[in-house]
């Protein structure tokens, strides 16, 4: 935007909030027309927005984690509870009721997560850039994603929030934090003492020069905007480099010696190097496992073989 945000984390003035980006314009147009159906938004990567009577009930994009990722990756809901509720509730569209009914999460907590996923998806689409928007009318019984927010959010509210977020993002771009930066942590920090600092610590841990803010958001099960904000704040504090000049910080793994002429590896004894990665279990003098008998992965707890009473009965 304009250069008025020299201080990276200042609050933007309200004047810029009237700027309507392409996603904002699409949302406002279809919201005011009381559209019911879905908007297929193409872009890199684009996404889909679901509307009912002009209210946004869901939005999904590969660029930001949806409710399922936010709930499961962050540990807010256990895998087991999710599977139970999904089997029972998803086919009839009552996944949210099942999750709340099984006390996996409170109804207010669930709504906050689902709402934030919509705000985040709309922000992510705008941030990554969109091209066209194709409305598709589905009627009142059209299929919705698993966790819609009903009755929905007004597009005006979404657009207002989107403008605010985009203004903040423009300020972060000045210190090098963008959707495409791949931040690197300068040095690891100590385990956080307070729960509130945990996300800062987690973001630093995931900042290895390979991941974009979007990748870190997925890895942690947190919203894209929150992660961008955290990266900007860490960059201001000098704890990470937002966009290092050389993106490929880690050397590639290769079976070949790059100094030799290239050739495909041939299968000879030891050429897979799998014994280096998964060391064979000792027990035989030559280190090889017996050819007969099951191979038990080292991380599986097994009963000792010597007690035949423990064997399951046939």
């Amino acid at each position: 935007m304009n250069g008025q945000y020299s201080n990276g984390l200042s609050t933007p003035s309200t004047a810029s909030l009237d700027d309507l980006g392409p996603v904002g314009a699409m949302l406002r147009e279809h919201g005011r027309a009381n559209f019911s159906g879905l908007l297929r938004i193409t872009g890199s990567p684009g996404g889909t927005v679901f509307l009912r009577d002009g209210l946004v009930v869901a939005a999904s994009t590969p660029a930001s984690p949806g409710p399922e990722s936010l709930l499961l990756r962050s540990g807010r809901i256990s895998e087991e509870a999710w599977n139970l509720a999904f089997t029972a509730g998803a086919p009839s569209g009552h996944l949210a009721a099942e999750l709340v009914g099984q006390s996996a999460i409170g109804s207010a907590g669930l709504e906050v997560v689902c709402l934030s996923a919509i705000f985040d998806a709309v922000y992510a689409m705008e941030l990554f850039g969109v091209e066209t928007c194709e409305p598709e009318t589905t009627g009142p019984n059209g299929l919705l994603p698993p966790l819609p927010v009903l009755p929905g959010i007004t597009t005006d509210r979404l657009v207002r929030d989107l403008s605010r977020r985009m203004a903040m993002t423009a300020a972060w771009a000045e210190i090098g934090v963008t959707a495409h930066s791949r931040p690197v942590a300068h040095h690891p920090i100590a385990e956080p003492q307070l729960q509130a600092e945990k996300i800062r610590h987690d973001v630093l841990t995931k900042s290895n020069g390979r991941r974009t803010p979007r990748d870190i958001a997925f890895a942690l099960g947190q919203g894209l905007y929150v992660i961008m904000q955290e990266i900007a704040s860490l960059a201001e504090a000098g704890l990470l480099e937002p966009s290092p000049p050389e993106l490929r910080t880690r050397p590639a793994v290769s079976a070949e010696d790059p100094t030799k002429p290239p050739s495909l590896p041939q299968r000879r004894r030891g050429s897979s190097k799998v014994n280096k990665v998964l060391p064979p279990q000792t027990g035989k003098p030559d280190g090889r496992r017996p050819l007969l008998g099951p191979r038990i992965p080292p991380d599986l707890a097994v009963r000792p073989d010597k007690n035949p009473d423990d064997e399951p009965e046939a």
């Binding site: 290895n208 390979r210 880690r250 590639a252 290769s254 079976a255 590896p265 299968r267 897979s272």
Partner: peptide, 12 residues
């Protein structure tokens, strides 16, 4: 390779 030997990887 199709028999499972690594040629090159971009892994983390």
């Amino acid at each position: 390779t199709v028999d499972g030997l690594l040629v090159v990887a971009d892994t983390d």
